[in-house]
Structure formats: structure tokens, C-alpha cells
Amino acid sequence: MSLFSRTFMMLEQGLDYASLREKVIANNIANVDTPNYKAKEVRFRAELDRALQPLEAKRTNPKHLPFTRPMTNKFLVTSRTNVVYNHNGNNVDIDQEMSYLAENQIYYNALVEQLNGKFTTLKTVIKGGK
């Protein structure tokens, strides 16, 4: 029996994703003037595949195909190579990166609030509702 529900694991993975995204965005901002630097981004698809991994369809016939996905252990970090903004080959758009940073901060704060709520609920249960 697990002390924590699956919700804690999903919130932890969400926080890991937000933390990695924060690092990638900060790296992009730090390299805004670096010649030939290509902005990087964290792909959500890798996280979505990992979240759907435990999902399995009921097979009523042995000939049915299994409904499983390959397990991915890491988030996918890729370079944006389709656009060049500066004459020096750099494709970091500082305004866009700052927007991504604000969006990620809101996402991270929402996850922390959810996690705090779960811990508050556990604390209330442990204290017997007092």
C-alpha cells in the first residue's frame, strides 16, 4: 500500500518538467547574443507519452493489438532550427523567451499549490480532522 496517491507522482513529474523548462529558457536568455546559438525547447510530447504509459486497454481477443507506449525516461530537449532572428545566426527571441518564462512560472506555482493542498489534506487526516 502506498502512502501517497498517484497524484503526488504526477505532480512531481510536472514539477520536474517545469524545472527543466525553466533551465532551458534561462539558458536561451543567457545566450541571446551568442553567435550561431540555436534556442532550445522542452517538448511536451515526451512527458505526455510517459504519463500515458500505465494506460492499457482491455484486450477481449488475443489477436487485438496491445495498447502500450514505449517508456521515455527523459524529457525531450530539442533545438529550434527553423528560424533565424539575428544576422549572427542566433534565433533567440528575447520577448518570446520572457513570455515562456512567465508562463512556466505560473504553471510551476499552480503545481506547487496543488501539492501543498494535498499535503494539507494529509495533515488534516493525520490529526483526525482537527
Rank of each mutant, 00 (worst) to 15 (best):
L115K: 05
L20C: 08
Y100S: 12
V83F: 06
I126L: 09
D33A: 07
A57N: 13
P54V: 09
V83W: 01
V32W: 02
K74V: 10
K123F: 08
M1G: 13
I106L: 13
F44N: 01
T68M: 06
T72Y: 13
E56T: 11
G14F: 01
S99L: 14
F75E: 03
K23D: 14
N31Y: 04
A46P: 06
P62A: 02
D49E: 15
L122P: 02
A57H: 14
N36Q: 08
V42C: 02
N82D: 14
V112E: 01
M71G: 06
N28P: 00
Q105E: 11
T124E: 04
L20Y: 07
M1R: 07
E56A: 14
R6Y: 11
N90P: 03
D93H: 03
P66C: 01
E41M: 11
K40P: 05
L15R: 08
H64F: 12
S5A: 06
I106V: 10
P54G: 04
G128A: 00
N27S: 14
A46W: 04
L20H: 11
I106Y: 03
K123Y: 05
K118P: 04
L55N: 10
H64L: 11
K40W: 00
Y17E: 12
V24P: 10
M98N: 07
S79H: 11
L48A: 09
S99I: 10
V125K: 06
A26R: 04
I126G: 01
E56H: 13
M71R: 11
M10T: 13
T120M: 11
K123R: 14
I126V: 06
D95E: 13
L3F: 05
N116S: 13
A110M: 12
R50M: 08
Q13D: 15
F119C: 02
V83Q: 08
R21G: 00
L111W: 01
L11F: 05
E22C: 02
A18F: 02
P62L: 07
I25Y: 04
D95G: 10
D49C: 06
H87W: 10
T68K: 11
A30W: 00
Y17A: 14
Y85R: 12
K74I: 08
E103S: 03
L48W: 03
L65M: 14
A39I: 00
K23M: 09
K74L: 13
E41G: 07
L65E: 12
N116C: 06
E47P: 03
K40E: 12
G14E: 00
R59G: 07
Y17N: 15
I25K: 00
L52E: 13
A30T: 07
K63W: 09
P35Q: 03
N31R: 09
A39N: 06
I29K: 02
P70T: 08
K23H: 09
L3E: 08
Y100K: 15
A51N: 11
E113K: 15
L55S: 10
Q96P: 00
K118W: 06
V112T: 13
N61V: 04
T124W: 04
S19R: 10
T121E: 06
N31A: 05
K23V: 03
T78A: 14
G14S: 09
F119R: 08
V32H: 10
T60S: 09
